[in-house]
Design a protein around this nucleic acid. Structure first.
Lengths: 228, 228
DNA sequence: ACAAAAAGTTAGGTATACCTAATATATTTA
DNA sequence: TAAATATATTAGGTATACCTAACTTTTTGT
């Protein structure tokens, strides 16, 4: 049986690997994420490695094994279901849910998660737009489409790009839009199709239709009519 | 700020003091209740005493201070609200709720408790019939009446007795009915008013109307028509 | 009332989860 | 490519929450 703090580690490793394009995590990132010091993290990683949840080498970083990935996805599932419940059923704001879900995710009852999931209307995405894995660890399929096909109010996640010229990628990195970024389409200017998007929950940017055409996203707003 | 394990101690001390007629708890009872060894408990009690939540002397046992009582009632509140939510909203059985509530009670959010409380219909009693203290630590008033005035299906808690002859008290202790015992009235025999009651969640007893007249209880079944 | 049993206490040990400071190894940049 | 910087690692320390074994005090039963 996994301890609560093991679950935190696995979820953190998973989250970091998702937000990196390399898919690898380092000790200092993990330490920063977990608000611990690197020696503490290293010590624990050795145990997680013995238990075959991860592999770790200095050069190659931290990777989840198949078994570790399965566990991690289960924790992610619990976490995102709690977040959704807190937001939709208990009416907590977007920004309050994370910390509470962190605590609730440690509660050990598959049955409780099932009930909470039902009470929340069996959602496919959490309030941040992140997909909720099913019990077998499968993420819900999401339709990949250009950001350009959005409608106002659409919430979506960046899955990738359709062009990899340095100019384009530099431009995106200048805007600080990366893989898995969550975007909210605030306004679409009919004149030339420019999109005003909000992201990192605060910043906004104006994207020309030429750029928006090349950013591939999936919509995470339930019932959204975008791309139709 | 109280640690989760402090909360367990305070709740346990409160619970034990409720089920004893002396109102005092001992180290070994507490150790048994918490599934710990006496030296562990003693060690911790010294800290709780320093922090002014309890007083402890070998001869006088463990007592909650005013501040300790306030904390304990708050934990009891959280625990019983979770139990009710699990039972009424999540449809867990009577017997499953305790252990889960124990875990959930450690989650630190007054606001969450408020929401869960609302979702459960602002109950006055938990699924075991125990009263839920309000935020200021006040227990809901319960009407004191003889067990005799019950109707079938009535669930109630023993508050005391109306006679203290040794014969009567010995008889009750023989039946293993004590203070705060929860009783379910299973059947009333019209012939002579004998009551069949179930308690300790398993045992049953037949009580003559003479006995039932002298056992004072309060009903904890919402909307029950007993005593009317 | 005194021996036996129970309860409380002390002393000392283990495991864990964290830390800091110092050292070693990579990586970056001039 | 060497120096500067960042990251990883080792060694060793602290606090806590538990334990067992041995001893002391209190309670109980004859």
């Amino acid at each position: 049986m996994l301890k609560p703090s093991d679950e935190k580690y696995l979820r953190a490793i998973y989250q970091i690997s998702q937000s990196e394009n390399t898919g690898k995590s380092t000790i200092s990132e993990l330490a920063y994420y977990l608000e611990l010091k690197p020696p503490t993290v290293l010590e624990r990683l050795k145990i997680l490695e013995q238990e075959k949840y991860i592999t770790y080498t200095k050069t190659d970083g931290i990777h989840l094994t198949r078994s570790g990935q399965k566990q991690a996805l289960n924790v992610v599932r619990k976490h995102r279901i709690w977040e959704t419940f807190l937001h939709k059923v208990c009416k907590f704001s977007w920004s309050e849910v994370h910390e509470l879900a962190e605590q609730l995710q440690t509660v050990n009852s598959e049955k409780l998660i099932d009930r909470i999931f039902m009470l929340s209307g069996e959602p496919k995405f959490d309030p941040h737009g992140d997909p909720i894995p099913d019990k077998s660890g499968t993420l819900p399929a999401s339709e990949r489409r250009p950001l350009l096909n959005s409608i106002e109010g659409c919430r979506c996640t960046v899955l990738g790009v359709n062009e990899d010229s340095a100019e384009f990628l530099n431009y995106l990195s200048e805007l600080k839009i990366g893989l898995n970024e969550k975007l909210v389409v605030e306004k679409i200017f009919a004149f030339d199709g420019t999109l005003k998007v909000r992201f990192k929950n605060a910043e906004t940017a104006l994207l020309s239709s030429k750029v928006a055409e090349k950013i591939m996203v999936s919509c995470t707003k339930p019932g959204c009519l975008c791309g139709k």
